[in-house]
Amino acid sequence: MAAVIVLLLTVSIAALELPRLWTGGAKKAVLLYVCMMAAGNVAFAARSFGYALPNPSDWMRVGLAPMTEALTRLGLIAS
């Protein structure tokens, strides 16, 4: 399945990148890398199983709702 392929790919890329980083002393970078790769793989797996991912555009829409209100009222935005 697609999620497995993606996992394999990310693991192989990580195998190429990480050893050099770890011995080079960039522990924080390795940590960040692993976290983000894990997040990516989880997200991809979730999507391929049909779970909907949270949409950051939604967050922005909600967060900026007051401002969009104001702009619409000013006529600067035409809905």
Binding site: G24, A29, Y33, M36, A39, G40, A43, A52
Partner: peptide, 22 residues
């Protein structure tokens, strides 16, 4: 981690690709 910024490219790229469909 500016010296190793280049390593972040792959995970961030992956995440962007996933979220571009979302």
């Amino acid at each position: 981690i500016t010296k190793h910024a280049k390593t972040l490219t792959v995970p961030v790229g992956l995440l962007i690709a996933i979220f571009s469909a979302v």
